[in-house]
Nucleic acid binder design. Structure first.
Lengths: 350, 350
DNA sequence: CTTTAAATGATGTACGTACCTCATGTCAAG
DNA sequence: CTTGACATGAGGTACGTACATCATTTAAAG
C-alpha cells in the first residue's frame, strides 16, 4: 500500500486528526502519555510527513543566505555563478538564496553582518570565512537564534553547530604531494611553495599534508619554506625572481591558492619552464587555460556546484530536521589533468 | 511577489482556470489561438507549474526501473547499493525505483525484458547494457511507448532517445595514458593492457584514448596489444604469465576493467612488482584496498552514487518535461590516489 | 436565422498537511 | 457537586494543482 497519511496515523494511534497535528507540530495541550502513543504509532506504521504537502500548506519558503568574502576572485565568481544556477532550479522548491558579502579579514564587520541576521528573515546561512574566535561565537549565537549554519570551504572546527561543506585540506595537500613526487620522476632539486598567506588554517593544513608525503616519498627533493605573496603582484614577482635565481634546480612548484595569476606571470617571465612540475588549486578559467597550454600540470579542486547544492541541501535538512544522504554530501578532492577536464571547460579561454 | 499560480496565469491570459488547466495538461477542446495566448502569458509572467502541488493533486508516483546486467561484480554491487540508498531518500519524493536484471550478453532476452515494460507500469528506465542494434531498436520502441530512457555507464550513441549518464570513455583512456606516461618517469619498457573483452565499445574507446596519449607523450614505451581475459581466472593467469615472461621490461599495466581481482592475483603471483605502475578502473572495496597497500597506483572512476541520482533526476525531468541543470548531471572522470580516497573507503577491508 | 458542434466558463472535489475555532470530554481541587 | 483548567474531538479553510461535470458562449454550417 501507499504511504501512510496523518489520517492513518490518527486511526492507528486512536486519536483524532487534531491531536496528531498537535503532536507532529509540537503544539501545546497534549498529555505526555498521548504524545507517546502517537509517536509509537508513527514508528509502527513508519509514518513520514509529506514534506511537499506540508510546505504547500504552510506556503513556506526557505530563505537561505550565503555569506561570502567581499573581494573578487575567480573562485568566488564560480561560487556566485553556482548560486545563481541553483537559484534558478530551486524556485521550484520554495527556496530562495541570497548573498551577503562581507570583508573576510575584518572580523568585526563580519560579526556585525552575522548578528544582523534574524531568524524571522533567514532560515539558514552558509558561511565562507576564515576561522576566528569572534566568528565562532557569532555562529553559536546564530545557532541559538534557531538559524541553521554550515561552514563553506573553510571549516569552523570549533563551532560545533556548523556542519562543514568542503574538502579535507590536509588530504588535499597530501594528494598534491603524491602527484609532485611522481610527476618529478627521479629528479633531484627543490620545490617551491607559494601561498597568499600562511595565516589561514586551510593553507596550514595543505602545507602539512604536502610535507608529510614529500618526506615519505620524495626525500630527493628539498621543499622550501612557504613563500607568502599577500596577493600583491609586485611582491610576488620579486619573491619568485629571487627564489628562482637563488635555487638553480627547481623541479616543482606548488601554488597553494587558486588565485595564481600573478605567480604564473612572474614564473613565466623569468625562466624556461621545461620540466618544472607546477600544481595548483581550483578549476577556474585561468587554471583551465594553463592546464590546456601545459604550463600547469595538475589542478586539485572541489566541485563548486556541488559545494553550493550540498550546502543548500544540508541547510534545508537542518531546518526541517530531516536526515541527509551522507555519501551525496561528501565533497571529493578532485584531480584534474588536461585529459579529464570537464568538456565544457575546454573551450573557455581566458 | 511570490510565484505566480494558475490563477494569476488565468487572469493574465484572460481565460478561465479551466482553460488554463486544459492548456497546461494538453487536454483537447481549446482553440489554437487560445493555446498560444496562454503560452504567451506563461512566458510573460514566468509561470512554472508547482511540481509538488501537481504531484500531490495527481497522487502520482514516479515508477522508475534500472535494467542491469545479471552477473554479479563489485561495480554492479556498488550500483545496487546506490540505488537502495536513493530509494530510501526518495520515498519522500513519490519515486519508486525497482531493479530488473537481464543477461547483458543475450540481446534476445534483454530485448524481451525491455519490450515487457509497459508505460502504465513504468515511467522511466535506466538501461545499463552494451550497445547492440537489437537493444537500440528496443529503446526506440520504449520511447515510442512514452517511457523515458537513459543509458547508464555504457552509452547508446545510436539511440537518440536515450540520454547518456556516464563518462566519456575515450577521455578516461586519455587520462590513464597521461598518468601512465608521467608515473613511469623516464623509464623505457613496455606496457600491458588487460581487458575482459575488446568487443565492448567502452573498452575500445578507452584503448583509443590511451593510445593517443601514449603515442604523444611516451614514445619511449611500447604499448602491447590488448589482452583479453574473458573474465576467466585460469586464462588470465596464463596470459599474464606468458606476457611477463616474454617481455622482461614491463613498466606499466593498464587494467581496463573494474573486475581486476584475477588479474592482480596473477600479476602478484608471478613477479616482484617494484616500480611497475598499475592503473585500474572504479573504486571498489578491492581497488581501494590495492590503492592503500600500494599495489595499485591510481584508479579512474565515476561516482556511482552520482550516476544513480543523476539518472533518476534526468528520468524525472524527462517525464515531467522539465529542464535539468546541466552542470549537475555531468559525471566527472575521477582520479583517485591513495591520498584523495574518500575517507569512508579507507577503512573498508576486503 | 436556426442548428449544431466546438470552445470556454463555473464550480466542486481531491491530494496531504497546517492552522484555526469551537464544542465536548475528563479530572482534580474546592 | 461545582468550578475551572486542561485534554481532546470535530470541523472548517487554505495551499496550488488535477480532473470531472455541467452550463454557457461562440463560431461555423445549413
Amino acid at each position: 500500500m501507499s504511504r501512510p497519511t496523518t489520517k492513518d496515523l490518527a486511526k492507528v494511534a486512536g486519536v483524532s486528526l487534531a491531536t496528531v497535528d498537535r503532536v507532529l507540530n509540537e503544539r501545546p495541550g497534549v498529555r505526555q502519555t498521548t504524545v507517546e502513543r502517537v509517536n509509537e504509532a508513527i514508528k509502527a506504521i513508519d509514518f513520514v510527513r509529506d514534506i511537499s504537502a506540508a510546505n504547500l500548506a504552510r506556503s513556506k519558503e526557505y530563505k537561505l543566505v550565503f555569506l561570502l568574502p567581499d573581494h573578487d576572485d575567480e573562485f568566488i565568481d564560480l561560487i556566485l555563478e553556482a548560486i545563481a544556477e541553483a537559484n534558478r532550479s530551486l524556485t521550484h522548491e520554495r527556496t530562495i538564496v541570497t548573498i551577503i558579502r562581507a570583508p573576510a579579514n575584518d572580523p568585526r564587520r563580519l560579526v556585525e553582518e552575522i548578528d544582523k541576521l534574524s531568524a524571522t528573515e533567514v532560515d539558514g546561512v552558509a558561511v565562507m570565512t576564515p576561522e576566528t574566535p569572534q566568528v565562532r561565537d557569532a555562529i553559536s549565537r546564530m545557532d541559538a537564534r534557531g538559524i541553521a549554519v554550515v561552514a563553506l570551504v573553510s571549516n569552523q572546527p570549533n563551532a560545533e553547530s556548523a556542519y562543514f561543506v568542503g574538502i579535507n585540506n590536509e588530504a588535499a595537500g597530501r594528494t598534491v604531494g603524491q602527484l609532485m613526487a611522481r610527476f618529478t620522476g627521479e629528479k633531484h632539486g627543490s620545490v617551491l611553495v607559494l601561498t597568499e598567506t600562511m595565516q589561514s588554517r586551510d593553507s596550514q593544513e595543505r602545507r602539512l599534508g604536502f610535507d608529510v608525503i614529500m618526506a615519505k616519498y620524495a626525500q630527493r627533493l628539498k621543499v622550501c619554506p612557504s613563500m607568502e605573496t599577500y596577493g600583491d603582484s609586485v611582491r610576488t614577482a620579486q619573491i619568485v625572481r629571487s627564489a628562482l635565481q637563488s635555487r638553480p634546480s627547481i623541479v616543482g612548484i606548488y601554488l597553494m591558492n587558486h588565485d595564481i595569476y600573478e605567480a604564473m606571470q612572474a614564473i613565466e617571465a623569468l625562466s624556461p619552464l621545461q620540466n618544472v612540475v607546477i600544481i595548483g588549486h581550483e578549476l577556474t578559467a585561468h587554471t583551465c587555460a594553463r592546464l590546456i597550454d601545459g604550463t600547469l600540470d595538475a589542478v586539485i579542486s572541489q566541485d563548486v556546484g556541488h559545494l553550493v547544492r550540498s550546502s543548500i541541501r544540508v541547510l534545508k535538512a537542518k531546518i526541517t530536521s530531516i536526515g541527509t544522504v551522507a555519501s551525496q554530501e561528501r565533497i571529493r578532492i578532485e584531480i584534474t589533468l588536461r585529459e579529464n577536464m570537464p568538456e565544457e571547460r575546454q573551450t573557455v579561454g581566458r
